[in-house]
Nucleic acid binder design. Structure first.
Lengths: 187, 187, 187, 187
DNA sequence: AATGAATGAGGATTCATTCAT
DNA sequence: CATGAATGAATCCTCATTCAT
């Protein structure tokens, strides 16, 4: 609800009046339930962080196999789909985020998720795990009027984009185990 | 100069007073040179767009070979390095962008760049070209305190990160021509 | 309880939420017992006014002797000690006082008290009676962190300050009867 | 100008709108000249503090005689007359004062002034010096609609009140040197 | 007897913008 | 060329107060 506005327009550009109007309440009513604008955004974003926490916790209990990594990506794709506004908010709001350490919280989660997908190996593998994650973000952004860069789609349907992004992500995190063509990388 | 502020704090959070102060002039002096806050940001971001235009124009004159694609990525990496604040501004400022069609301009460029890197083929290839570009953004963000998600680095030096990202990007745009393992993608 | 807040922070700076919190009740509960913020302050200050009324009534029944005046000052010192927050509130809250004629009520009492201490005589005597009263206020303010001007003490213990102030006050109201040095005043 | 409002209604009760209105400018115009409400009050009160500083500095250069003390009181009476709103503001605004150490500044000055008038001796002498100062405040308050307690006058003309207060103050600070009746004080 | 929820009015403050000089 | 001064509109936020339950 409020988060959509934050995500669309940015934290600063979204006034409490707008939020209150959209929610059909008074500005002052918001302040009965939240102590500040910051608290509002924190509240609306908490679930997203919690979802990632849960996913990471689950992953850390699994064997570090290809299948686990794939399942992590699948689940993360779902999380991003459901919590799309939250994700977008984090990706696009430097100002609204540096306050109250919300940015750091997101970076922590991203690092944890990355830790689950990256098993050691050359810098290239690190980057690949990174891009696998970002790929999930892009997939979500590709469908619908996301307002994000690359948004507006490349002419793919939602399922197509999702599946294609997953395929590419799988491939990216698989490259590490499938050593062989690895020698060509530095050249 | 002014752009760094926009990139660091966001368009809305950066006041003209701050910009004027950092530039050592008066607020009113800014209005002698620019007609509005919007015009300031447009002016500071123009070079970045122009650089991409030039790159795309050059690429369209080249044969569509692997080498060309690699060179495009290399040059784009350099552009992003030099114009980092501009890039960051585009990625992180929903508000400052929706005004005056600046966002659309960036999306156009990204689409053009994508067009140069993507030669047709399955949706997966589309996504790969996308991630190759995003990879260049990440590489720039990884070095230094970028404030972007995944910023703060993964323990890589600037050159390492750059080279690794290029390697991965090369690999991503090469996957299209190097048919063979392609059959595994759907599984 | 509530009055201490009013005295410490001033009428306007003390919100009903603060009062309710300190009292361990709800803001709405306050409105069950009092009809307005004003009524709260009136209620908490009434005892002080009543004490003065009683003192003045007693004094008016006594013979107008030196001893009576001394006893009035002693009793007023005690009142001020016990009702210190109320006194402080009156001295320091122009805003909270102008409403509902509370200020006038205090001025009335001060005038009555003054009337009991001042027996006629030159303007100087008037002023002396005034300062005798104010001296009692200062004595109370001198002990403890009163927040009043001259508060914080002059390095005197509570008893010292009290006794010294009383001595001086006695002396001030005695000057009237003890004619003699009076001739020096105009010089 | 603005200070009169602060003194009349108290710091908190005086809104910037009121000040701006009375000054015939916009609220925003105030913010061009002052950085905050606090700065406004500081600015309007500075002269008063400076006057006291000057007086104390002068006094400390003089021999510590009766005449000097009398002249100090005379000059302080004049200062209080001229800067009456400032003085009143300090005496009546606990809240507006605790911020920005303005209260402490006033207490410092009062202590310095007291130091100039008090030459050692028993606690009673301390109190007397205090009351001499306060007497000057009362004198100013007695004339005109001061709004202070004891304001509204005791039926004295301005000059009468002033002269009477001075007489009493002289007497108070003289009591120290004129030892003799001092023995009766403790009784 | 008490409260959770809501609100209208107003608070200080900031901002992009204008304009006479 | 440049600036000091000013402003209208909007910001977040707080408050005293009300009312259904």
């Amino acid at each position: 609800m409020a988060l959509e506005l934050f995500a669309e327009q940015g934290y600063d550009s979204t006034s409490l009046r707008e939020i209150a109007d959209r929610l059909g309440v008074t500005k002052a009513a918001l302040y009965y339930h939240f102590r500040s604008k910051e608290e509002i955004v924190v509240a609306t974003v908490e679930d997203f962080l919690a979802d990632i926490d849960e996913l990471v916790a689950w992953a850390e209990d699994q064997p570090r196999t290809t299948d686990t990594r794939h399942e992590v990506l699948r689940r993360y794709a779902e999380i991003v789909r459901v919590r799309f506004p939250s994700m977008r908010f984090f990706q696009q709001n430097p100002a609204g985020i540096h306050k109250s350490g919300l940015g750091e919280q997101f970076q922590q989660r991203m690092a944890a998720l990355h830790g689950v997908l990256y098993d050691g190996g050359p810098p290239q593998s690190r980057i690949r795990a990174l891009l696998a994650i970002v790929g999930m973000h892009m997939a979500a952004a590709l469908s619908g009027d996301s307002g994000m860069p690359f948004g507006g789609g490349l002419g793919l349907s939602v399922e197509e984009a999702n599946q294609a992004a997953l395929d590419v992500a799988f491939d990216l995190v698989d490259r590490d185990s499938t050593e062989g063509a690895e020698g060509a990388e530095r050249g």
